[in-house]
Design a protein around this nucleic acid. Structure first.
Lengths: 197, 197
DNA sequence: ATATAAAACCGACCGGTAGTCGAATTTCTG
DNA sequence: CAGAAATTCGACTACCGGTCGGTTTTATAT
């Protein structure tokens, strides 16, 4: 039962690479099995369907993302920085730039949307905890933290979704976070450095 | 050249109906031409591709939506109600309920995302004007109105996107609008009636 | 070692798909 | 009425996701 898992992982990685480089819709199952050097039947021995493969590829991607987010949350830093650190981690770094770029092809709408939904679903509970801690410390003077965090996550995702974000977008976004959470004006200002420096 | 336009409109309406009832991915070009009683070649005489058909169908849908929004904006009512009236128009009414519902099938992710993007692109300029008017009247005490409106539109879209929205979601959302625009606390409260009554 | 079962693998095959194309037909125009 | 332009046709192609019965490899029990 070891061999099977290894093969599946191999297939997932091939699919991951091809979905990103050629787009989900432009990658056929035949492409994948040719690259892997296996037969059609073997592929469907490991996957229910092509779409389920996509689903698993995305989960794999998000495992890595969530791991990073969890590190930030558990770090020994101020609450505001935790909140913001996770949000800033949305920003594609140098190595992820081509990924996010690929996601913007019309061809990849499905992939894009699925990632979006799953990411939000994972991040909101994580950040809600942080939000509640912040409230307990008197940093945020409002109720309904989870719902407010949800709004913030949605907005951050949208902000870093576009091909580029302007200085205005960042500034207003920071202000919005502070306003939504009833945080002290300027208390989130340090995000600017994170996003530009 | 009159006959052609009429046929194209007919095809668009058939595609519109079928995309909504069966889903975009589950509707084949063959389905459409059978319903229309024409040959494949005729279809491709009018459309570049199936996806371009979807694009045009969506534009057609949004023309109607935008028309409604424009009516609200031009009406002789307070600024806050204009802003909110347009946003509330996102809410699927009785006749649109099946539409929005259909949009939530996995099958319709592409359609859903395309509508989303196009709707935001159309509504933001429209509502930005309203926002600027509100600012001129001293209702909103902040700069960067277009960007703030953009955030609000994104959030409203997301709010009404889910299958259902809770009382908490509505309450927080109203608060968020007021906070983002630096409006007087409670000045947007009347939305509640619109969304529940 | 041998028998048996389970896991992994194979590839021909199927139904259905979007899109093409050259030719036929209808409609417009001078 | 002639010729051009617009419209329609449907057979055809290339490809795609998914199936299935059978084969080979691997693990397990005796």
């Amino acid at each position: 039962m070891k061999k099977g898992e290894k093969r599946k992982l191999e297939l997932l990685q091939i699919a991951y690479r091809m979905f990103l480089s050629k787009g989900y819709g432009n990658t056929s199952v035949d492409d994948i099995i040719e690259e892997a050097g296996i037969a059609k039947g073997t592929y469907y021995y490991y996957f229910e369907s092509k779409e389920q493969t996509l689903e698993e590829v995305i989960d794999m991607m998000l495992d890595a993302e969530e791991e990073k987010a969890r590190m930030v949350v558990q770090a020994d830093i101020p609450i505001e920085q935790k909140l913001v650190g996770v949000i800033a981690s949305f920003r594609p770094d140098a190595s992820e730039a081509p990924i996010k770029e690929a996601l913007h092809d019309t061809e990849n709408l499905i992939m894009h949307e699925k990632i979006r939904n799953k990411l939000i679903a994972r991040l909101v509970p994580l950040l809600s905890e942080v939000g509640e801690q912040g409230k307990a410390q008197g940093l945020f003077e409002c109720g309904d933290i989870p719902e407010r965090v949800r709004e913030i996550v949605i907005l951050s995702n949208e902000l870093f979704d576009g091909p580029a974000y302007t200085e205005t977008q960042i500034r207003v976004f920071i202000d919005t976070i502070e306003r939504i959470l009833y945080a002290k004006p300027g208390s989130m200002g340090f995000i600017t450095q994170l996003l530009q420096g």
